[in-house]
């Protein structure tokens, strides 16, 4: 993938990360937290052009839930409000034990995709989200058993080495799909040079998704579009639409990246096209 892909205008898959598991309504009151709110948001982003929703689960007070039952409620609400959007569950969970991290994979039906955090990530002053190789392998094994495609979350350059290691240890169906994440803390420093390095370091044939955290949510997906990648936006990663202005909804963030794609002459993938590109089964 690269600039040639942009010139050939392959359809871009837009993922909407609707809710997350770190901040909540205290950061932006428009951030959906309940299953019904998340379901409605999914319908809105699908209408706006997203073909994938990335989901975390929460309790009624906004706090994190990893329970299969809570993910089930959310999936049911998403399916009520959408046509055929691709559901991608998060398996992330700083501080949560490994067995709990598996619970989001166990809905019925299982999600078509699920995230796989490729390595450690520091949080606050005293926490690290461990994401050991053993956990990565364990989660991947269950994803294979359940027919779930992994979305490899590459938080920094070292995690690209972890992707190569995973490919050495385990069989991943083509295409390998990696989300390249840029921002503060343990993330890849958000510079254009690091973006180019990251896509150069992708395994041969891999597709990439572009995630810019916070204020980087607009420039990095723009670069992702220009270099033949796919993009992720949403309130999980960024609560602002502009400096000092909270985003009204996830849909507004999707609409903006759709406008960018339109201006660049880049077709936005339908969910059917997204399934084909990602190697998912047709519905």
């Amino acid at each position: 993938m690269g600039y040639e892909a942009y010139l050939d205008a392959d359809p871009v898959i837009i993922t909407a990360a609707l809710t997350g598991g770190v901040h909540g309504k205290e950061a932006n009151p428009n951030l959906p937290e309940t299953p019904e709110e998340i379901g409605r948001a999914a319908g809105e982003v699908e209408a706006a052009g997203a073909s994938v929703v990335h989901l975390h689960a929460r309790k009624p007070n906004g706090e994190r839930s990893f329970q299969t039952e809570r993910f089930q409620e959310i999936d049911d609400a998403v399916r009520r409000h959408t046509d055929d959007i691709i559901i991608q569950h998060s398996t992330g969970g700083t501080g949560a034990p490994d067995d709990v991290r598996h619970q989001p994979l166990r809905t019925d039906p299982p999600p078509e995709m699920a995230s796989l955090d490729m390595g450690p990530l520091n949080r606050y002053a005293h926490l690290t989200s461990g994401n050991t190789r053993a956990l990565v392998d364990s989660l991947h094994a269950e994803m294979i058993d359940r027919g779930i495609k992994p979305e490899l979350e590459v938080f920094n350059d070292g995690h690209m080495n972890e992707v190569e290691g995973l490919l050495d240890r385990r069989d991943l169906a083509d295409p390998v799909y990696a989300t390249l994440i840029f921002g503060p803390g343990t993330l890849t420093p958000p510079t254009p040079g690091n973006f180019l390095n990251a896509i150069d370091n992708l395994p041969d044939g891999a597709l990439f998704n572009t995630l810019g955290f916070g204020r980087h949510q607009l420039p990095f997906p723009t670069m992702g579009l220009l270099f033949g990648g796919h993009v992720r936006v949403g309130l999980e990663d960024n609560v602002y639409y502009e400096r000092g202005g909270l985003a009204e909804s996830n849909a507004r963030l999707v609409e903006r990246v759709v406008r960018l794609a339109d201006e660049l002459g880049w077709p936005v993938a339908s969910t059917a096209e997204a399934r084909e590109i990602l190697g998912l089964e047709e519905l």
Partner: peptide, 23 residues
């Protein structure tokens, strides 16, 4: 108000402990 992730530390959920993990 604290972030939902931090609330797990406040509540000593999983292997988290406010005495050890909350600055």
């Amino acid at each position: 108000f604290v972030q939902p992730m931090r609330a797990d530390i406040c509540n000593n959920r999983y292997d988290l402990d406010h005495g050890q993990h909350c600055e």
